[in-house]
Design a protein around this nucleic acid. Structure first.
Lengths: 234, 234
DNA sequence: CGGCAACTTTGCGTTCGCGCAAACAGATGT
DNA sequence: ACATCTGTTTGCGCGAACGCAAAGTTGCCG
């Protein structure tokens, strides 16, 4: 088996403050995997055999209803943990994770999570902090969903994505992975049709540029206004 | 100051598996408070000075948007923790908590949370489990909000409340604390008008009985069908 | 006991967003 | 290069749910 260098994970918040020897010990238990675009890393409901850290790529976390409708819970960017069912006191995955682009992940057997949390307290502390942050995040999204209307929710979703995965390009800030109208609809609890209409309107106003699975925010300030406050009819 | 007996918290999941002496040590740091109906236990955004356990009553946890619209995140029943900002890695409360009826709570200084988690590992483990369960809960609600329509969401909400705070009475199972149409609207992301209409229709069909701030589920089975599957027009 | 305040019901008009369907565009592969 | 597939746009009609407004209830407090 090839060796994993501690530089892989040295900078990551989850392993903040650990000595090089500790990092090596942790890495010696890890397996590095390549996951092709659109392949699942794990599936909702199955027993949680491993937990992961995303090293490269983008992952979308999806929850599905019994009747097949689904919602995108969040996107994961490099450095973040995923599949940490253990930290939630569960033994099955509560959602599915799918590679939005080709990804590289490190995987550990779930059983090791508890051991790491004990042996390296800052690891435990940081993962719990992650869980806490995600709880807050989802609550915020809930609040949005409950109180704002679709156009504002879509605006919020795009701004969130740009913050997390924005890459500056000629015309503005682009979302740096392929994302379809359907995806945005599943983030905001609406339909791809409505998303398409909304974004076409924005395109006409010059707020965004978008194409096939691709979105660039041109006037993020105006979009922010739209997301928050007044509907600003013109 | 009056003495708090360990029997107060001996049975609670959060303190599961602790010796009597530990419970006494924990209690010696606690303050018991009475909170009148409609009074706040803590407010969203303010520095988290304390964390709490609800001993008696019902508490609603509410998040508010900058412009004053709000959503009820969850109801707390006796034995549950609340205000555990520390466990989320935060130092302000992410939501407000209001007594839905007269309540009794135990309060500890926030600073002690970390100490307890270290001194009594099962306490730490259990609170993290709580956070994990809540994260999953909120995600489920999100999925509902995104994929189901209002009538189904209201049905879900009522069933959830009945499961958590149902008291069997003559006609069926009653929700054992006062809850208004407005409250239900804020749980489901709709308006009190729509909730009223829906529940009037259900009352006509004999599914529920309801009055001023009071709801009883008569035919929980039919309500469950309605919540999940087919719209079953009749 | 009377008056008030809070909660609920209901009607009506409107709008937002969905559902369906068809056409279009850009990528992919053989 | 052509056929195909996936993703996007757009028109049209409909229905769910909202917003507003007014009236009806119920419980509470003085």
């Amino acid at each position: 088996m090839s060796r994993l260098d501690h530089s892989l994970i040295a900078g990551l918040p989850a392993f903040e403050g650990l000595a090089r020897a500790d990092l090596d010990a942790i890495l010696s238990k890890a397996v590095a995997l390549r996951v092709a675009k659109d392949d699942a890393i794990f599936d909702q409901g199955v027993e949680a055999g491993s937990f992961f850290i995303l090293l490269d790529g983008r992952v979308r976390v999806v929850r599905t209803t019994p009747d097949g409708r689904q919602a995108i819970v969040r996107y994961i960017v490099p450095g973040e943990l995923l599949g940490i069912a253990q930290a939630l006191g569960r033994d099955t995955y509560p959602a599915s994770a799918v590679a939005a682009v080709d990804c590289v992940v490190l995987a550990w057997p779930s059983r090791l999570w508890a051991k790491f949390a004990v042996d390296y307290p800052s690891f435990g502390k940081n993962t719990y902090r992650t869980v806490g942050a995600r709880l807050e995040d989802v609550q915020t999204q809930m609040l949005d969903m409950a109180t704002r209307q679709v156009e504002q929710r879509v605006a919020h979703a795009l701004l969130r994505l740009v913050r997390q995965a924005g890459r500056s390009d000629g015309d503005g800030i682009a979302i740096d992975f392929p994302i379809s109208r359907q995806d945005i609809a599943e983030m905001t609890g609406t339909t791809l049709h409505t998303v398409s209409r909304i974004m076409s309107a924005w395109e006409d106003k010059g707020l965004v540029k978008s194409g096939r699975q691709q979105v660039t925010i041109v006037e993020s300030h105006k979009l922010l206004l739209l997301a928050e406050g007044r509907t600003e009819r013109d």
